[in-house]
Design a protein around this nucleic acid. Structure first.
Length: 724
RNA sequence: AGCGGGAUGGGAUAGCCAGGAGAUUCCGGCGGGCUCAUAACCCGCAGAUCGGUGGUUCAAAUCCACCUCCCGCUACCA
C-alpha cells in the first residue's frame, strides 16, 4: 500500500466484518455494511480501482453448539444463514464484488497454506494444556461445551468464564466438577497439545504498523494500550470437529481445528481471490493487492524485505469493522499477515454502536430493527442507508428511533434534495423540454467543483458521513440559487436569464446524482434516468458531474415520499409491542404495570425520561418463607484495613455475636477506613463464601447505592441480633 | 478502578489530527418573503462564556495537565 492520496495507482479492496452465521441481520450489522459499501462506491467514483468483498463466518463454537442442539449438521445450519445473508444484502444495495464463506474451498486452502507458512517461519509452538473431555462421546469439550463449579467462588460456571458467579475468565482445566453440556456426563481432564501463535514476538512490528495505520482513532489507540500491557501468545486451535482442520497429518488425526478467528479474516483474502479468478487477473489482481504484485512472494522474501518496501508495492486494504473486533483486526490479523508474507492493511475503520430509542440494542430482548422487518415495511433501502451513514461520524455511537429517522428523511431527503430536483427538472421539462441550450454559469460550475473537491476529501478521510451529505449540501445550494434568481418571473421578463438559471439547475441535478450514488445508489439511478442519461450512474466517474446532460427528458416524478406522523407512530408502536411481548415471554409479567399504561397512551411516554435513574422495583414478589432464608444479623466492625493492591476493597473483622467474621467489602474510597471500627452494620450471614484478592469474604455488609451508604441500627441492638 | 470514545445554542450534529475571520448544518421557536416545487423553498432574528480549572501561545472549541459527568470494554460490583 501507500499512504498517498486516493486515487492511487494500486488496486484497493474494501472489506466489511464477516457476519456470523448464527442469527438474523439487524441495523447494527447494516451500519458497517452500508458504510463500507458507500466507501467502496465513492472510491470507484474518484477513479480508484476498488473491490468490495466479504463472506459469512461459518465456524466456531456457537454454530457448533446451536446446530447440535437443533440436531442438524453445522455446515447445513451455517449455510442456511449464509444464504439468507446473500439474499438480503442486495436488497439494501450492499453490492459485494464477491461474497463467499469461510467454509468454502478457497478459504480452506488459503487458510491452511497461511498456517503452514506461520509454522515454517517458526512462529508456531506447541504447548500442553488440560482440556475437558466427555469420556462417553470421546470428545473434547471446548469453551461452552463444559459447565461446572468455579474454583474461585463456587458458583455454577461455564468452561471459559464464571458467568453467573465471580465473572472470572477461566483457563482450560480450571473448572471443578466439570460436566459435559452434550450428555450431562461428568467430564474428565485430558492433557492435549495445542498450537500457539507467537504474537508476543511481534510487538515491535505492531507498533510500527499502528504508526502508519489510517482509519478511525479508536482502531489505532486501543491496540497501543494492549501492546504496552504486554501481548499474550494466542491459542489458535480447538478440539472441535467443526472448522478448518489444522494442517499436518498428526494434527488432523488429533482432530484439531483452527480457532475461528484464524480463518475468519483470511476470508477477506479468499473472497478477493475468488473475485479475481472470476473477472480475470487482468481486470483485478488479488495478488497485487494482498501480496506485492511482483509475482508472489515466498515466505523468506517476505521476512527479508522491509515493511516499507512491501507496502509501496501492494494494494490499499481497507477494513470496515465493528468496534468490538478491533483487537482481532489490529493485533492478530496484521501479525498473521506479516509473518505469512502478505501486505498490511492501510486502514481499519471501526464503527460505533447503535442504540434504539436511547437504549442498547439487544437481540435477545428483541430491541432491534431487523433488516427483514425494515424491508417488509416497504421502506426504501436508501433511506436507511442515508440515516445510518450520515447520522454521526463513523466511530460515533448513534441512536435510532423512527421519529429521528422520519425527521432526517423528511427534512433532508424529501424537502431539500427531492424537492430541489423535482422543482428544477419539472421547470426545465415544462419550459424547455429538457436542458436549455446554454452553457453552465461560472458560479454554478465553481460550486459543483467545490462539491467534488469536498467529496474527494471525504473519501480520503474515510468520512462516510461527508460522502453522504455532499449531495444534500449541493441541493441546499440549488434551492437557494433557484430562489434567489426566480426563474418563474424571468421566464417572462428575461427569457435568456431564465434559461441560464434552469440550465444551471439541470447541471446541479446531474452533479447530485453522481454525488449521491455511494449512499443513495437506487435514488441516484432514478435521477440519472429522469435526466435521460445513457448507461448507469454506477459507472459514472465523479467528473461526469460537469458534463452536459441530454437536451431533452421526460416529466420528472417525485423521488421521495414523506414519512407521515401516523406512519411513525405505527412503526414505533410495533417496535414497542415487540419488545414488550419478548420481555413478557421471558419474565412473565415483570413489566405489567407500565405495559398496561403504554397500551392506552400509545408510545409517546413509553421510554422517555419519566423515570429518573432509579432502578425499577422488581415486580416478582417473593414469599415470606423465601425472605426468611436470608440470615441477616446486626454486626459490629472490630477492625478495618485496606487490602493491598486493591483500590476499593477493605478487609473487615465483624463481630456478629455468635462469632467474628472476616468480610471483604468495597468501601475503601467511600469511607474513612480508620473510622469504620465500632460502626454497627447489617450483615448477610448465610451468604456463600467468596475469595477476593486472595482474601476470604465470609458474608456481606449491606450498603446503599453507589456511595456505599452503610446500613446501621438506630437504637442499641446487640451484635448477633437477627434482622427481620 | 484501569483503558478507549464522548461532552459544542432547547434537541441532534460538524469543526479538533495540520491553533487564527462573524463556530457548521439539521430539527424546534419568532418574524418576513416567494409561489416554479411534495404546506415544499428562501431570507432574517433570538439562542452557545465550545463540560470545569489551570497552562502553552500574539492567538485555543482546537495543543498540554488535572478534574467532573455520560457510553463502551475490562473488572476488585459479595
Amino acid at each position: 500500500m501507500s499512504n498517498d492520496e486516493y486515487p492511487t495507482e494500486n488496486p484497493a479492496v474494501v472489506t466489511a466484518g464477516l457476519p456470523y452465521a448464527n442469527g438474523d441481520l439487524h441495523i447494527g450489522h447494516l451500519r458497517s455494511y452500508t458504510a463500507a459499501d458507500a466507501l467502496n462506491r465513492a472510491l470507484n467514483a474518484i477513479g480508484q480501482q476498488s473491490a468490495y468483498v466479504c463472506g459469512s463466518d461459518m465456524h466456531g463454537t456457537p454454530v457448533a453448539v446451536n446446530s447440535w442442539q437443533q440436531g442438524v449438521d453445522p455446515e447445513e445450519f451455517a449455510l442456511e444463514w449464509h444464504e439468507q445473508y446473500e439474499e438480503t444484502f442486495p436488497k439494501f444495495d450492499v453490492e459485494f464484488d464477491n461474497y463467499g464463506h469461510t467454509h468454502d474451498e478457497t478459504n480452506t486452502e488459503l487458510t491452511r497454506e497461511i498456517v503452514c507458512t506461520l509454522e515454517d517461519e517458526g512462529y508456531i509452538y506447541e504447548k500442553t494444556i488440560e482440556v475437558a473431555w466427555d469420556p462417553e462421546e470421546d470428545q473434547a469439550l471446548p469453551d461452552r461445551y463444559v459447565e461446572g463449579t468455579c474454583p474461585y467462588c463456587g458458583e455454577q460456571a461455564r468452561g471459559d468464564e464464571c458467568d453467573e458467579g465471580c465473572g472470572r475468565h477461566l483457563e482450560p482445566g480450571e473448572i471443578e466438577d466439570p460436566v459435559s453440556t452434550l450428555t450431562g456426563n461428568p467430564a474428565e481432564y485430558r492433557k492435549r497439545e495445542h498450537k500457539f501463535f507467537e504474537v508476543s514476538a511481534l510487538a515491535d512490528y505492531l507498533t510500527e504498523f499502528l504508526d502508519d495505520l489510517e482509519g478511525t482513532d479508536n482502531a489505532q489507540n486501543q491496540p497501543r494500550q494492549w501492546i504496552e500491557e504486554g501481548l499474550q501468545d494466542w491459542c489458535i486451535t480447538r478440539d472441535l470437529d467443526w472448522g478448518i482442520d489444522y494442517p499436518g497429518d498428526e494434527a488432523e488425526a488429533d482432530n484439531l481445528v483452527l480457532y475461528v478467528w484464524v480463518d475468519a479474516p483470511i476470508e477477506y483474502v479468499a473472497s478477493t481471490k475468488q473475485y479475481s479468478e472470476r473477472v480475470g487477473a487482468n481486470t483485478y489482481d488479488w495478488e497485487a493487492v494482498w501480496k506485492d504484485g511482483q509475482g508472489g512472494v515466498s515466505a523468506s522474501d517476505a521476512s527479508g524485505g522491509s515493511p516499507d518496501e512491501r507496502r509501496e508495492a501492494g494494494g490499499e486494504i481497507i477494513h470496515v469493522i465493528g468496534r468490538d473486533i478491533i483487537q482481532h483486526h489490529t493485533i492478530f490479523w496484521p501479525t498473521m499477515l506479516q509473518v505469512a508474507g502478505y501486505n498490511a492493511p492501510r486502514a481499519v475503520c471501526a464503527t460505533g454502536f447503535i442504540t434504539i430509542n436511547g437504549k442498547g440494542l439487544s437481540t435477545s430482548r428483541n430491541r432491534a430493527i431487523w433488516a427483514r422487518e425494515y424491508l417488509d415495511e416497504g421502506l426504501h433501502p436508501d433511506l436507511l442507508r442515508y440515516y445510518l451513514t450520515t447520522n454521526g461520524g463513523l466511530q460515533q455511537d448513534i441512536d435510532f428511533s423512527w421519529e429521528k429517522f422520519a425527521d432526517r428523511v423528511n427534512g433532508e431527503l424529501v424537502d431539500t434534495l427531492g424537492n430541489f430536483l423535482y422543482r428544477g427538472l419539472l421547470f426545465a421539462h415544462r419550459n424547455y423540454g429538457g436542458r436549455p441550450d446554454v452553457g453552465v454559469s461560472e458560479e454554478v460550475e465553481d460550486r459543483i467543483e467545490e462539491a467534488l473537491e469536498e467529496f474527494n476529501e471525504a473519501v480520503n478521510e474515510y468520512d462516510v458521513r461527508g460522502i453522504g451529505t455532499a449531495p444534500v449540501d449541493l441541493a441546499r445550494f440549488g434551492n437557494e440559487y433557484i430562489q434567489r434568481n426566480e426563474p418563474w418571473n424571468l421566464v417572462n421578463d428575461d427569457p435568456d436569464a431564465a434559461a441560464q438559471v434552469i440550465r444551471d439547475c439541470v447541471q446541479l441535478a446531474k452533479a447530485i446524482a453522481v454525488l449521491a450514488e455511494p449512499v443513495l445508489p437506487g435514488k441516484a439511478e432514478a435521477i440519472w434516468e429522469q435526466l435521460a442519461e445513457d448507461g448507469s450512474v454506477h459507472d459514472a466517474a465523479l467528473s461526469a458531474a460537469l458534463d452536459a446532460p441530454p437536451e431533452s427528458f421526460d416529466e420528472p416524478t417525485e423521488l421521495f415520499a414523506k414519512i407521515e406522523d401516523d406512519r411513525v407512530n405505527e412503526l414505533d408502536a410495533k417496535l414497542a409491542d415487540r419488545i414488550e411481548s419478548t420481555a413478557s415471554d421471558d419474565e412473565e409479567d415483570a413489566n405489567e404495570g407500565t405495559a398496561a399504561a403504554d397500551a392506552d397512551e400509545g408510545t409517546d411516554t413509553a421510554d422517555d425520561g419519566a423515570v429518573p435513574d432509579m432502578e425499577p422495583i422488581v415486580e416478582d414478589r417473593i414469599s415470606f418463607e423465601e425472605f426468611q432464608e436470608l440470615d441477616l444479623r446486626v454486626g459490629r466492625i472490630l477492625s478495618a484495613e485496606p487490602i493491598e493492591g486493591a483500590d476499593e476493597l477493605v478487609r473487615l473483622e465483624v463481630d456478629i455475636g455468635v462469632e467474628t467474621r472476616q468480610i471483604v467489602a468495597g468501601l475503601q474510597q467511600l469511607h474513612d477506613v480508620d473510622a469504620l471500627p465500632d460502626t454497627k452494620v447489617i450483615v448477610v450471614a448465610n451468604l456463600e463464601k467468596a475469595e477476593l484478592f486472595g482474601e476470604e469474604s465470609n458474608g456481606m455488609v449491606l450498603a446503599a447505592g453507589e456511595q456505599a451508604d452503610l446500613l446501621t441500627t438506630h437504637e442499641d441492638a446487640v451484635p448477633g441480633t437477627r434482622v427481620r
